[in-house]
Design a protein around this nucleic acid. Sequence first.
DNA 1: CTGAAAGCGCTAACAA
DNA 2: TTGTTAGCGCTTTCAG
Lengths: 337, 337
Amino acid sequence: MTIKDIARLAGVSVSTVSRVLNDHPDVSDTAKEKVRAIVKEYNYIPNTSARELGKSTSENIGVVVRGMSNPFYTKIITEIGDKIERAGYTMVMQQIGANDDEIFAAAKMERDKKLLGIIFLGGRLNYSKKQLSSINVPFVCCTFNNQYGDVDKSDYSSVCIDDNQAAHDAVEYLYKEGHRKIAVLLAGPEDGSVSQVRFEGYIRALKDFEIELDENLIISINSFNIADAYEGMKTWLAEKHEFTALFAISDNMAMGAMKAIREAGMNVPNDVAVIAIDGIEASEYMNPVLTTLCQPMEKMGAEAVRLMVDIIKGEKTHKHILLPTILRQGESLKMVQ
Amino acid sequence: MTIKDIARLAGVSVSTVSRVLNDHPDVSDTAKEKVRAIVKEYNYIPNTSARELGKSTSENIGVVVRGMSNPFYTKIITEIGDKIERAGYTMVMQQIGANDDEIFAAAKMERDKKLLGIIFLGGRLNYSKKQLSSINVPFVCCTFNNQYGDVDKSDYSSVCIDDNQAAHDAVEYLYKEGHRKIAVLLAGPEDGSVSQVRFEGYIRALKDFEIELDENLIISINSFNIADAYEGMKTWLAEKHEFTALFAISDNMAMGAMKAIREAGMNVPNDVAVIAIDGIEASEYMNPVLTTLCQPMEKMGAEAVRLMVDIIKGEKTHKHILLPTILRQGESLKMVQ
DNA sequence: CTGAAAGCGCTAACAA
DNA sequence: TTGTTAGCGCTTTCAG
């Protein structure tokens, strides 16, 4: 079944079929009905490749998401899709694996789908100018920026929380409750990811509060996995370091860690206070409920689209937005208000 | 940049470029090198649409997944991708929203990508023959079958657990520990989804154990969401029904329920025993760890691909595989071995 | 081993 | 309002 068959069956030309398929004006009602009837009868589905190939422009905005099924992105994606739709564009989403190259994926998608712009959801923080030269449309980084790369701030937009400050805040909350032996659970550590930024915030906080950095309290694992966090924490706990609080650089890792702490016979928050950053849904259902600094997911998605659309519509200057986190006062850290 | 440009720049014909791009044999090393150099220099990326349009066949197996970011599917997908690759085919994955029509998505993908077959991951249990007529390649249902539809068992393959029996088993575990007032948390209830099947298993178990069905112990919510489960459970608990155990039809829902139970001042497992079905990773990190009947995810994915490949290779008869669940003995149900 | 040329199924001028 | 036709960028015979 091709558009040609439909045209023949409906007794019209292919262009007429194409027109009704694409809701173009200037088609007689009779023709419209006729075509629609045949399309329905034969269960005809236009070929996407041919469609995209034939078209010279699009109203597509690409979204490339690193890591499938990251619950953290789900809400943001929903919001992004919604806002893109509302602005009259079409979202084209592409999920890529943890080890895939988002720049390549974006470049490919840009050409294939004739994108007007690209929103990156999660990604490396160290793109180089050269790598990015393969992308020829404006892009905005959502949930991260490119602080370790050599790309000019004026060449792209971004919207994210101030990860360094969030980590600083987290440590400050612990500090204010009297904690001085604050362990940190991170991935990397020097992996050029958001983990590193947050770790730097931890370091900065220690300095500000005049706590000496204790290498023994740095728990470094190789991924952001909950299982790895659990194992890493377990191993570390077996070494019997003295500590009263844990700052996990992500909710997910905190969840793994809390299980290890529990199994080691310690109580959260009585023996060990735990705080993290992210605010994913699952950590709300932990026992105790995780105290964490939430990223404003909806807001983030909405802002990313706003920036994107502005630029598509002619705005010349790229912007970089830092959104504040919101404290979720759970049960993993006793706070004396 | 098109293949034509590359051809010109490399001083060869487009067909030669196409050949080296697709690793065809019968290309001189000189030509190969020349083309590759130009491709690299100009950062050329072939257009996917044109490629797919031009090709007459493919080695693609489609996977349509209902609901993005369902952690339950992540492992299965990884396994499926792996096995497809290993069998020499290419996986083409398509995620669809909770309310999208998987049949349509599959039919579209089948034509666009020239699929050899389709694996459905999650989906309705009530396809009709008519709806399925738009799909012209073999397909296998993974994690569900089509028991409420009118499609011949001989027209498709499936691999899943015996959901009815799993529910029966769950109730049996509770029964054996002395529980008689067993509440059930489900979605629907008559929604034609896996929730219904499991609910039927619950009913059957009650009959077998001569427990009278108590309508008051049926907690029905509108989705599989953790948040809805939490709210639903909370509301139900406020009604002060007498019960000693809860069978949740999914891990996710059990997680929401456990928080509600905890907040109502009851202890799991001492006041209320909880058991569920699925075995997702997150429920392993709950406190208490959820006792649940795990679906054999890897095995499921592997079997789905095996069935698919067999059929592609000429196997005539469709098969329906029921895989056993594996009990994860957590802490939400005290078992006296 | 290489090139010319005919599609793949659709869109979009351009004519009518 | 409709039809004709030239691409879109690639693959794939078929000659050479």
